[in-house]
Nucleic acid binder design. Structure first.
Length: 310
DNA sequence: AACTACTCCTGGAGGC
DNA sequence: TGCCTCCAGGAGTAGT
């Protein structure tokens, strides 16, 4: 199954690229698809040539390269962006993002749209079969502005993201179903469709559960699930992407992409349906109202949670 | 302000 | 086998 880069994938990529790219200096840049590179007036991508990568940071799904000359490169991989760093002999040093094309495919691929060459002969390929990803070339101050404009919610893995903060973030979305709220980057940053399903399953809630119907116990469960699911994915280094092909570890993801397979908790088949316009995977037994619309949530069962099944 | 619909893309899956 | 159609999916924007 194709995998869209979400917070854990971007964080893994950040960690790997930081190990191989910090200290490298840009020697040249080859932009093959102009729309993917955005620059404010007066700046062009050539301005990064001769600048050194000092630090690689992440905010939500944005990857930020801080450069020596007061500029920064900001990447957003969106649906299908992929970054591969190879040495002069084309041996892969670091790779991440969407697994298509395979990480060991010949580069540049026909969907490789931006190529960065470094002073040590190594090359960073930005490949994107959907062409939705973006790269910004910005002055330092412009990075803050870009992040500010995105009005991103808090980082869910930051220690400052507490149950109280979650409650406060959800307060203005009381009438909305849980799934689209989790996907809303303004509420909490970094969660995409795959991890939303995993978090909701781990919380033993349903995609349709109204945020306003969450009681304290459900909020605590939801908070723990966000931390656990994302934290595990970051710690495991997103092991389901191996050799550039999306596979699944034995037990992750637990429901997403597993239509018809047994639920890891109760053994009943996982069901796939559409919710809020997104492919949504649930266990009808552990998440009993999963297939219903918003109206399906019963007020007598605020969390929409079934009996503990193990 | 809150929410929905539409838009951008193309590999891959499914139908016949 | 091959041709055709349609879907996925983050996030910005326009419309209600």
């Amino acid at each position: 199954m194709p995998r869209v880069p979400e917070l854990p994938e971007v964080e893994s990529l950040r960690r790997d690229l930081a190990a191989t790219l910090v200290g490298r200096t840009f020697a040249s840049v080859d932009v093959r698809l102009a729309k993917q590179v955005l620059t404010p007036t007066g700046l062009s991508v050539e301005h990064i040539i001769g600048q050194q990568i000092e630090e690689i940071r992440r905010r939500a799904k944005f990857l930020i390269f801080d450069l020596s000359g007061g500029l920064a490169l900001v990447f957003h991989l969106r649906l299908a962006g992929q970054m591969i760093h190879r040495d002069a002999e084309q041996a892969t040093l670091a790779s991440g993002g969407h697994p298509v094309p395979a990480y060991d495919a010949p580069m540049p691929h026909r969907s490789t749209h931006v190529i960065f060459h470094f002073d040590d002969g190594s090359i960073l390929y930005l490949t994107d079969i959907r062409q939705f990803g973006r790269v910004w070339v910005l002055p330092d101050a412009g990075v803050d502005q870009l992040i500010e404009q995105a009005k991103l919610g808090p980082e869910p893995l930051d220690p400052s993201f507490t149950v109280d903060m979650l409650r406060e973030r959800l307060a203005r979305r009381q009438k909305m179903p849980l799934k689209p709220v989790l996907l809303d980057q303004h509420v909490i940053a970094g969660i995409g469709n795959i991890y939303a399903d995993e978090i909701i399953f781990a919380s033993r809630l349903t995609p349709a559960t109204r945020v306003g119907d969450l009681d304290d116990a459900a909020l605590v469960r939801l908070h723990r699930a966000i931390k656990d699911v994302l934290g595990l994915a970051v710690r495991e280094g997103v092991a389901e992407i191996l050799n550039g092909r999306a596979t699944m570890t034995r037990d992750f993801p637990r429901v997403h992409g597993r239509k018809g397979q047994p639920c890891p908790v109760c053994g009943r088949p996982i069901v796939k349906n559409q919710f809020a316009g997104r492919g949504t995977y649930t266990c009808p037994e552990c998440q009993p109202y999963a297939g219903d619309g918003v109206q399906g949530v019963q007020s007598g069962d605020p969390a929409g949670v079934s009996e503990e099944a193990g």
